[in-house]
């Protein structure tokens, strides 16, 4: 009766921002991003991409609880010339380009397979 709506896992609550940012008060060049209604899919993807960036000193994420639909992503950069937000933007852009590349790769690979294995499926 008091179970939360399943859709609360992916639809933003009223007046909820998708991403919130809080600069770290104790560590320089660091801050925590809160991604509302996201999970390991995006969290781990962003963390691994950020770790490939030489201007990023630290990147880590956590999903606080299975029923709390958000992830916290902490980023620390190597210098004050590089904001955590800039590093995040760059990571998202790289991943977006990688996905574009994958779409082309998959489409080409499937077409190639179908040409080589003419199973009559092409007309379907």
């Amino acid at each position: 009766m008091n179970t939360p709506e399943r859709s609360a896992a992916f639809i933003l609550d009223d007046d909820q921002e998708k991403i919130e940012y809080a600069a770290d008060t104790k560590v320089s060049n660091a801050g925590t991003f809160t991604f509302n209604k996201e999970d390991h899919t995006v969290g781990n993807l962003l963390r691994m991409q950020l770790l490939r960036d030489p201007t990023v000193k630290f990147a880590g994420y956590k999903h606080p609880h299975p029923l709390v639909h958000k992830i916290l992503l902490k980023i620390q950069t190597t210098s004050s010339q590089r904001l955590p937000t800039e590093a995040l933007s760059a990571a998202i852009e790289d991943l977006s380009n990688e996905t574009d590349h994958l779409i082309t790769q998959v489409t080409e690979a499937i077409d190639k397979w179908k040409k080589e294995n003419d199973t009559g499926m092409l007309g379907m």
């Binding site: 760059a90 990688e98 590349h101 790769q105 998959v106 080409e108 499937i110």
Partner: peptide
């Protein structure tokens, strides 16, 4: 500087 990767895909089999 971008850290983009260029993954490769190789299809082993396709059926509907």
């Amino acid at each position: 500087m971008p850290q983009q990767r260029f993954p490769k895909v190789e299809v082993l089999s396709v059926a509907p």
